[in-house]
């Protein structure tokens, strides 16, 4: 299967604090990786290196076989940050259109693309409403819709379900599974442990090191527990 993200021996320090130590990670086409770790474990730094926001001190990061940071590659991935990052005074449509233009979506395809991504997150009836009037869940969905613009082969989603109710959470995961089955590669960070059961592979990041990288089932049997939450706690305990 085709490799989408390849992280090889990546290290990164801020000042004298080492945030990532020799990380190796692969994400293949048609796969969802769940990046788990407590805050401060280096999740965001790893994502930022993949996006080209940060440059690794050493090691190699490639996306679709090309070395990062690379500006043009950013058009092939969809990114959803932890904060909703929306223009509140603009309507949902104007927000989607703006980011679609930034991604270089063809002018003729703009309108059908806006409708397409809005439908996925069931916001098609709210397109002309201003974001400032949106509920938290609606903002989260709009944020996801923007990440889905131009149907990118790679999705990097930072806490996509934070602050959403169970129904919305289910809807988002159904959509992610559908996209995976269509052949998209998805990197998700989450702190909701039962969501970690829904991914294909769990990458457990603790203290800047990748201490586990396997399917949830394999990890549970490896640690002799029955949930990812317990794997997490056990791994954290072992480290201390």
């Amino acid at each position: 299967m085709q490799t989408v993200i390849s992280v090889e021996k990546v290290s990164k320090s801020f000042g004298n604090q080492q945030v990532l130590k020799n990380i190796d990670m692969l994400l293949k086409k048609g796969e969802i990786i769940g990046l788990i770790g407590p805050s401060g474990s280096g999740k965001s730094t790893l994502i930022n290196i993949a996006l080209g926001v940060e440059r690794a001190d050493s090691g190699l990061t490639t996306i679709f076989g090309q070395k990062m940071p690379n500006r043009m590659l950013l058009g092939k991935l969809g990114y959803m940050a932890q904060s909703d990052a929306l223009y509140e005074s603009l309507t949902a449509k104007e927000n989607i259109r703006f980011f679609a233009e930034m991604k270089g979506v063809d002018k003729k395809l703009l309108t059908p693309e806006i409708t397409r991504v809005a439908k996925i997150v069931s916001l098609e009836n709210y397109l002309d409403k201003r974001v400032s009037g949106f509920s938290g869940g609606m903002k989260r969905r709009l944020s996801l819709a923007i990440a889905l613009i131009s149907d990118p082969g790679l999705l990097i989603l930072d806490e996509p379900t934070v602050g959403s109710d169970p129904a919305l959470r289910l809807q988002i995961w159904q959509e992610l599974h559908r996209m995976r089955d269509e052949g998209h590669a998805i990197l998700v960070t989450t702190h909701v442990m039962d969501e970690a059961e829904l991914v294909d592979r769990v990458a457990l990041l603790l203290g800047g090191e990748l201490i586990a990288n396997d399917s949830p089932q394999n990890l549970e049997s490896q640690y002799h527990v029955d949930s990812i939450e317990k794997v997490f706690l056990k791994a954290e305990g072992e480290l201390k």
């Binding site: 590659l73 950013l74 991935l77 940050a81 932890q82 929306l86 223009y87 980011f99 930034m102 991604k103």
Partner: peptide, 14 residues
Amino acid sequence: TSGTLGRLLATPVK
């Protein structure tokens, strides 16, 4: 501060 700059810079914009 709202994060839109981060999102903007995650697109191929110069």
